[in-house]
Design a protein around this nucleic acid. Structure first.
Lengths: 203, 203
DNA sequence: TCCAAAAGTGTAGTGACTACAACAATGGAA
DNA sequence: TTCCATTGTTGTAGTCACTACACTTTTGGA
């Protein structure tokens, strides 16, 4: 759909604020940057920031609807496919994306920023909870065993959490291509190992 | 150890604040009560409240070191015991405590208050994360397989979360003794079912 | 050209929380 | 009993995220 100039300018403002904010957060840490500073740096009123973003954390976690990924994957998969297989496949795909050379440094910086901010950690946990809810709903659509589906979603979230931590531990800050390959292999092993546990438990 | 009058009075103040706060929170909801109101109701200065409790949420989650429970249970268990067995046993024991007739109504009220407050939900997630950390540490002491232990802890937390939700769904607000027995049976079945998944997966 | 909708702004306020200085109760020493 | 140092309590002032609301500016279309 075509956007008018008005809507375009709005998105432009939003984008400018988000970009400026992200830069500041990555540079100096989330908690050390005030919304007022972001507004000043983006040359808008503080109110304008809150017109576009309901909370400070949304300035950091922007454009993020990745938490719907697993639910979408489940809905897209054939009805007779094993949920755990589907989830493992999508998780692997996402991970491979993230570990690509170009994105890697940026991604680690993001993660470090989150880990240094109680507010961002809390938000990440909130998002994970929403992921569980949406995944449970998607699973219920194909086979309404409430307890089991809820458990699958919770276990997936647990797996994701553990593997994300592993990712941070295993990946070096400077991405030497040969180290990266070995790290990537190690990671895939971990992914398969963790999902194997889920599959065996739920099978 | 003997406490002097000074220390006793301090604890008394703390206790008074906590009691008043809990009452207000349960009556009117966490977010609808301000710290200033708590202070006024307890007849102390706002500062005094923050001298005793680092954050508003601590007024609600007081005396709570229950999150160390699983880690303690692991440390107390014989070295050759299966962690999942130990965790299941302690969880079952805790659950039976909670479902006793006397505590039940109070407990549900607590849970409902949490579920109605984003701040309390966030705090509960934080506590769960701390539980995972401490449990991982305890497991590492007996068998230092990092990834596996981290996974066990995460899966335990997931199980707990799911079962707690189940508990809320299954238990009726008014505790008729016969309903309660059947609910309790249903719950124990769920507990065993969930832990069976973990055991099979990890075994 | 003009108007109504919508984006952006400024002001005032709330509520959690901190820093800090002052005050008051207390426990122990002289 | 008196005095002092400790420590719990208080009041003041301020920061920051966030809301409510009235106001101005921009813009798309009639």
């Amino acid at each position: 759909m075509e956007l008018g100039r008005r809507e375009r300018k709005k998105q432009q403002t939003r984008q400018a604020i988000s970009a400026v904010a992200t830069t500041l957060f990555l540079e100096r840490g989330f908690d050390a940057v005030t919304v007022a500073e972001v507004a000043r740096a983006a040359d808008v009123a503080v109110q304008t920031v809150f017109n576009h973003f309901p909370a400070k954390e949304d300035l950091f976690f922007d454009e993020s609807e990745w938490w719907q990924g697993p639910a979408r994957a489940i809905r897209a998969a054939p009805t007779d496919a094993d949920p755990v297989d589907v989830l493992e496949a999508t998780y692997l795909a996402e991970t491979r994306d993230r570990v690509e050379v170009g994105h890697l440094a940026t991604w680690k910086q993001f993660m470090r920023t989150i880990d240094n901010s109680p507010a961002l950690l809390a938000r990440r946990r909130l998002v994970a909870a929403e992921l569980e809810t949406s995944l449970t709903a998607a699973l219920d659509e194909r086979d309404p065993d409430q307890l089991r589906n809820r458990l699958i979603a919770a276990l997936y979230a647990a797996a994701q959490k553990v593997l994300e931590e592993r990712l941070m531990q295993v990946l070096p800050d400077d991405a030497g291509p040969e180290q990266l390959v070995s790290a990537q292999a190690e990671l895939e092993r971990a992914v398969r190992q963790v999902f194997a546990v889920l599959r065996r438990g739920l099978g």
